[in-house]
C-alpha cells in the first residue's frame, strides 16, 4: 500500500526524490502520510482535489482487498 502511494505520487510530481510516505499503523486504521517537494502539492491534489480523491479511492480499494482500512493524509511541505 505504501508502495502504491509512492509509485503514483512519484509519477505525478516534478521532484520524485522528494516524495516521502510514512506509514502510521493504528489499531484499526493505517494512516499514510504523504509529503511532496515544494511546488508539487498541486500535482498530487489536482483540480478541485480530484487527483487527491482518486488517490484515496484507490487506497481504499487496495485496503478493502486486504480486509484493512487506510487513510491518506497529504501534508503541506
Amino acid at each position: 500500500m505504501k508502495e502504491l502511494i509512492e509509485y503514483i505520487a512519484k509519477a505525478l510530481v516534478d521532484h520524485p526524490d522528494e516524495v516521502e510516505v510514512t506509514e502510521v499503523e493504528g489499531e484499526k486504521v493505517t494512516v499514510y502520510e504523504l509529503r511532496v517537494g515544494d511546488g508539487d502539492l498541486g500535482k498530487v491534489i489536482g483540480k478541485h482535489g480530484r487527483t487527491a480523491r482518486s488517490l484515496r479511492t484507490l487506497l481504499n480499494a487496495a485496503a478493502a482487498k486486504m480486509g484493512k482500512r487506510a487513510v491518506l493524509e497529504i501534508l503541506e511541505p
Partner: peptide, 17 residues
C-alpha cells in the same frame, strides 16, 4: 467500486500520469 468509482479514479490517475 460503487457506481464505478474506483475504476473512474484509476482512469483519472492513468490519464494524469
Amino acid at each position: 467500486g460503487k457506481k464505478g468509482q474506483t475504476l473512474g479514479a484509476l482512469q483519472h490517475i492513468i490519464n494524469r500520469l
